[in-house]
Simulated assay, not measured.
Amino acid sequence: MIYFDNSATTKPYKEVLDSFVTVSSDFFGNPSSLHSMGGQAEKLLSQAREQVAKLLKVKPTEIYFTSGGTESNNIAIKGAALLNRNKGRHLITTSVEHASVMSAMEQLEQEGFDITYLPVDENGRVRVEDVEKAIRKDTIFISVMQVNNEVGTVQPIKEIGEMVKKYPKILFHTDTVQGIGKVPLSLQKSNVDLCSLSAHKFHGLKGTGALFIREGARLAPLFSGGNQERKMRSGTENVAGAVAMAKALRMTMVKSETGIARMKKIQSMLRTALNEIEGIKIHTPIENSAPHIVNFSLSGMKSEVVIHALEQEGVFVSTTSACSSKKKFPSKTLLAMGVPESLAESAIRISLSFENIEEEAKTAIVKIKKTANQFRKVMD
């Protein structure tokens, strides 16, 4: 089996699973309980928070554990909008964000907020000058993802952050779910106020994530209850999940330098080989692109048909994002980039992890070429 769908989810590290089982078995107390078992759980939770903060080079008090990227995005966007609506009701984002960002924005529109969806260029990148031009007196929030989950485009987060410094009323949020461990980002130097992470994208467990909230930034909590996570996210904490997430992030960061270099080499191999196959159009840009994603179209072929054909060959890839892959609509990201609908409907995404090797890429190329030729014969 060749697993090339790591942008959808990654295989958890064995050490991560072991840490989750150990904490769940031996330290299962509620961290809010007063007895010693609760104290042990609370200590582990604090240690996990400190580890994540250290790896991200921020303060432990700026890390809030969540259930993943979707929840982190919703807390950031809705929490900022609801708390600051008296200052303004205008938010800015791009036309290529993850569904959890787009849906949150659409919900806020129904509540009377005004949303600007910025266009992107042919490479899927937003222009900093377009972001600044969209700013109004009533703008309170900007959300731009770090790495596009479909084509791998890296957005100019640092440059946008520098620009936003001139507008102290505006909170700047980035969804770094696809970028963490693969595309370096300094939250401090980039002037990011809010940042979303999801553990299962870096070999952690599903249902665990985090939200960075810069000290001084204020949000309205979306959950009411026992005031856990310093009143930002009520609900009994997933201690084992937080510990496992900290372990996964640490292991990912340790492997990052050599892992990124290997992924870049494999990505280059894939691009070169795919370009030689008749009817293939690569959408992932060469510049400002993450090292783990290659998005391409097989002209005239429906992507879901190709996905299942490759699966029969033992190669697992995907269409758009995992959240949208079953809806059978052409990729909004590709359409926003100006890709014709016929090509957008035939898009395939290969996404790598540090665990993939060159031999897998060579085998996958042979299988893709075989599949393309078979379908072409049927079409002819």
Rank of each mutant, 00 (worst) to 15 (best):
M1E: 10
Y13K: 03
V16T: 12
F20D: 10
V21P: 00
T22K: 14
V23K: 03
S32H: 07
L34N: 07
M37C: 09
L45F: 11
S46G: 15
Q47I: 10
V52E: 02
L55N: 14
L56D: 11
V58N: 02
P60N: 09
T61Q: 13
I63P: 14
I63R: 10
Y64D: 04
Y64N: 14
F65G: 13
T66N: 05
S67Y: 10
G68K: 11
G69Y: 05
I75M: 13
I75R: 03
L82C: 01
L83Q: 11
N86K: 15
R89N: 13
I92N: 05
T93M: 04
T94P: 02
V96P: 00
H98T: 15
S100R: 04
V101A: 00
A104I: 10
A104F: 08
M105E: 02
Q107Y: 09
E109K: 15
F113K: 03
N123Q: 12
N123R: 10
V126C: 09
R127L: 13
E129S: 15
V131N: 09
K137M: 08
T139Q: 10
I140W: 03
F141Q: 09
F141D: 08
I142C: 08
I142S: 05
V144I: 15
M145F: 04
M145C: 12
Q146M: 11
N149D: 15
Q155C: 02
Q155V: 06
E159T: 11
M163L: 13
K166L: 03
P168R: 02
K169M: 05
L171E: 03
F172I: 09
T174G: 03
T176Y: 14
G179A: 13
I180A: 08
Q188M: 03
D193E: 06
D193R: 04
L194E: 13
C195S: 15
K201W: 06
K206M: 07
K206F: 05
R214V: 05
L222Y: 10
G225Q: 05
R230Y: 09
M232D: 01
V239E: 10
A246T: 12
K247D: 08
R250W: 08
M251E: 15
M253K: 13
R262V: 03
M263N: 09
L270A: 11
N275E: 15
E276T: 12
I277G: 04
G279T: 03
I282W: 00
T284V: 07
S289Q: 10
S289L: 00
V294C: 01
F296N: 05
F296L: 06
S299T: 08
E313C: 09
E313S: 14
T319A: 07
T320V: 09
S325W: 00
K328Q: 11
K328S: 11
F329H: 11
S331D: 04
L334P: 05
V339A: 01
A347Y: 00
A347I: 00
I348D: 01
I348H: 02
R349D: 03
F354N: 14
E359P: 04
E360G: 09
K362M: 11
I365K: 02
K370C: 06
T371F: 01
N373V: 00
N373Y: 04
Q374V: 08
M379H: 12
M379G: 02
